[in-house]
Amino acid sequence: MNYNQLDLNKKYLITGAAGFIGSFLSKRLLEEGCEVIGLDNLNDYYDVQLKNNRLEMLDPYEKFTFIKADISDKSMIQDIFETYKPNIVVNLAAQAGVRYSIENPDAYMESNVIGFYNILEACRFNPVDHLVYASSSSVYGANKKVPFEESDFVDHPVSLYASTKKSNELMAHTYSHLYDIPATGLRFFTVYGPMGRPDMAYFGFTDKYFNGDSIKIFNNGDFENDLYRDFTYIDDIVTGVERLLNNPSNEKPKHKIFNIGNNNPEKLMTFIGALEKALSNALGEDIEFNKVYEPIKPGDVPATYASTELLKLAVDFKPETSIEEGLQNFADWYVKYYKVKDVLNTK
């Protein structure tokens, strides 16, 4: 079976199209010749200019339509579905971030719970071939058994963000059961790469270095029991999503969940070392972060580690980009995008 074969007669609605994953997925589908309706509210949780630059990347494609809208606006979402009649919906719009959910819980309930409910309702009244939605590795909470498998017990989330993502899975399962909506939830594992989210650690560390600040590492300086993360490069995420788009579940209820992770967790300190090396290569000089060690933050988990067997079985794909390759691509982009060499030369 050719898992890369996309149906060019179908319309793809992608929410969160100005986001990191949403923009890269939109670009991939547009390159394949698909019609894409992109939706985003362009909120200011992080740099709006970066979101606009991602959208500019999609501008040249004739089959791309952008709508500025918020998924928490039910009537607008219904109107968009009725007007454009999408065949496949990819819901990537969400309030992201574990730590921010402690500071601003309202944003998570509005976007991740009410917004997702609105998407489900729209799919109920405007039947679609497939609803694919973003869940998160955070639903595994502080599970000790690794690697995390989709069948694991996930009823003890340790952040509100994780709770909202778990609720998405339950809601999607219910709507699949009641209204026969084919739905697939994707548990993403620490996605990184060029044009990524500035609130992610690798991006924030880089910002702090060039601002002359120390970086905070939340592992108590315990290198033996360091935090582990299953870092997954953006292109691998997009390939996994793309292969699943036209492969909805035929079982009842038509709801499935997949991990998309690298299946190769790295110590946080190893990842930081690889980032220092990538930035050194990009700049042609040695880069070393000034590190400050602090206790693990509430809501953080000690390790994330994806089992990818179900994904491999379903669509014959397993993410394989190394952190060295992925971080080099990020570092090269960052230095160019922020004109770091020019800035350093003027100091």
Rank of each mutant, 00 (worst) to 15 (best):
N2I: 10
N4P: 00
L6C: 11
N9M: 12
K11T: 14
A18K: 01
F20L: 08
S23E: 00
F24P: 07
E31R: 08
E32M: 14
C34M: 07
G38F: 09
D44N: 15
K51Q: 10
N52Q: 15
N53Y: 10
E56L: 14
E56V: 03
M57P: 00
D59S: 14
Y61S: 05
T65C: 12
K68V: 07
K68N: 05
A69W: 08
I71H: 02
S72K: 02
S75D: 15
I80Y: 01
E82V: 05
P86W: 04
G97I: 05
N104C: 11
S111D: 04
G115I: 03
E121G: 02
P127Q: 12
V128L: 12
H130A: 05
Y133R: 01
A134Y: 07
S135G: 08
V139I: 14
V139G: 00
K145D: 10
E149V: 09
V154K: 00
V158R: 06
S159K: 03
S163L: 11
S167D: 09
E169N: 13
A172E: 03
A172M: 08
H173Q: 13
Y175A: 05
L178E: 13
G193C: 06
M195N: 04
M195A: 08
R197M: 04
R197F: 03
M200W: 13
M200Q: 10
F203T: 00
G204Q: 13
D207M: 15
N211F: 14
G212K: 12
I215G: 06
K216Y: 11
K216D: 01
I217S: 02
L227H: 06
Y233M: 07
I234H: 04
I237H: 03
V238T: 02
G240T: 06
E242G: 06
R243I: 02
L244P: 03
N247H: 15
N264L: 13
E266N: 12
K267S: 07
T270N: 12
A274S: 10
K277N: 12
N281R: 14
A282I: 02
P295A: 14
P295W: 14
D300R: 11
A306Y: 03
E309C: 04
L311C: 09
L311Y: 05
V315L: 09
E320V: 11
T321N: 04
G326N: 04
G326R: 01
W333I: 01
Y334Q: 01
L344R: 13
L344G: 00
